[in-house]
C-alpha cells in the first residue's frame, strides 16, 4: 500500500498551478484534501505521473455567502463550510448534508469542491449541487468556464473537468422564499457512504401550498438522480400533500444496482421511504421559515 512513483508539484500561485496542470495534461492530478486521492494512490488504483498540490495557493479557501447563494473555494474544507454561520443561514441544506459526510477527521481535511470533482454518485455534496442546480467554476491557462451541475456530473467518478483544468470554486444557489430543505440517508455505519439517501427542497406559494418540490438521490444511479415531484405532490397544502405519490415517482425514476451491502430492490424501496421523510421535513422547514 505505497503509491507508485510520481512527480510532486507545490505551486505557490494559481497561475503557477494552471501552468503545471497544462503541462501535465492527462497525467496530472490535483491534490487538495486528499481524502479520496491518497487511498487511491496507496492502493495503486490511480497512478498519475504528476501530483499538483494546490494547498499553498492563496485565495482558494473562500466561503462567500449572500442572497444569491454560497460560493465555496477549492480549498474550503467540509468542516469550514459546515461551521460557517453565513453559509448555513443562506442555505441550511449545506450544513444538513455536510453533517452526513464521512467523519469529523475526514471533514477537517476533505474539501467540498474536491468531493464534487471526485463525482462519486454515493456522495452527498454532488447531490446537493445537483438538487440546487448549482455550478462548478473550472479554470485553465486558457480562461475560466462555469459548468452547471446537470452537465458537470457525467458518470460514476466522472466529471466534465478536462485535463489542464482546476476546479477553483463551486456555487450553490439559494432557494426562493418559503423554501425548506432536508437530507435523509441510511448508511451501514455512521459516516459511511449511504446505501441510499435523498436531499429534498420544497418551496411553498403564498397560500402555503406546494409550489415546487424536488429531490436528489444518492447511490441509485451513475450520477445524482434529480427528480422534480411537484406534479406528483399536487398543489396542495404541505400538510395534505401526497408525499407517497411523490415517493412512487422517485422509485420509478431511480436505477439502483445491488452490491454486497444492499440489493437493488432494497435501495429502491429505501429511496422511496427516505424521499417521503425528506420531503415532509423540507415542507415543514418551509413552513417554519414562513412562520
Amino acid at each position: 500500500m505505497k503509491p507508485p512513483p510520481f512527480d510532486y508539484h507545490g505551486p505557490a500561485t494559481l497561475g503557477e498551478a494552471l501552468d503545471v496542470l497544462a503541462e501535465a495534461g492527462p497525467d496530472g492530478k490535483v491534490l487538495a484534501g486528499g481524502q479520496s486521492l491518497i487511498p487511491l494512490l496507496n492502493m495503486r488504483l490511480a497512478a498519475p505521473a504528476h501530483i499538483v498540490d494546490v494547498n499553498r495557493v492563496p485565495g482558494l479557501d473562500g466561503i462567500e455567502a449572500g442572497p444569491p447563494g454560497v460560493r465555496v473555494g477549492a480549498l474550503a474544507r467540509h468542516a469550514a463550510v459546515e461551521r460557517s454561520p453565513e453559509a448555513a443561514a443562506a442555505l441550511p441544506l449545506l450544513r444538513q448534508a455536510l453533517r452526513l459526510v464521512a467523519h469529523p477527521v475526514i471533514r477537517n481535511r476533505g474539501t467540498v469542491v474536491g468531493s464534487l470533482v471526485h463525482a462519486d454518485p454515493s456522495a452527498e455534496m454532488p447531490a446537493v449541487l445537483a438538487l440546487l442546480g448549482g455550478s462548478v467554476r473550472l479554470a485553465s491557462r486558457g480562461g475560466e468556464r462555469e459548468v452547471p451541475a446537470a452537465e458537470f456530473f457525467t458518470g460514476p467518478m466522472e466529471s466534465a473537468l478536462r485535463p489542464g483544468e482546476l476546479a477553483v470554486s463551486a456555487f450553490f444557489p439559494a432557494l426562493p422564499a418559503r423554501s425548506g430543505t432536508a437530507f435523509h440517508e441510511v448508511a451501514r455505519r455512521h459516516g459511511d457512504y449511504a446505501v441510499a439517501g435523498v436531499a429534498a427542497a420544497v418551496t411553498l406559494d403564498e397560500d402555503l401550498r406546494v409550489a415546487a418540490a424536488r429531490v436528489a438521490c444518492v447511490s441509485v444511479g451513475p450520477v445524482p438522480v434529480v427528480v422534480d415531484v411537484t406534479a406528483a405532490c399536487g398543489p396542495r397544502p404541505a400538510a395534505s400533500a401526497d408525499w407517497e405519490a411523490a415517493a412512487a415517482a422517485v422509485r420509478d425514476r431511480v436505477e439502483p444496482e445491488g452490491d454486497i451491502h444492499a440489493t437493488a430492490d432494497y435501495r429502491r424501496h429505501l429511496t422511496g421511504v427516505l424521499a417521503v421523510r425528506a420531503l415532509r421535513d423540507a415542507a415543514a422547514a418551509a413552513h417554519g421559515e414562513e412562520a
Partner: peptide
C-alpha cells in the same frame, strides 16, 4: 443480518 437482509 443487514437492513437489506431484514427487508427481504
Amino acid at each position: 443480518i443487514s437492513p437489506s437482509d431484514l427487508h427481504h
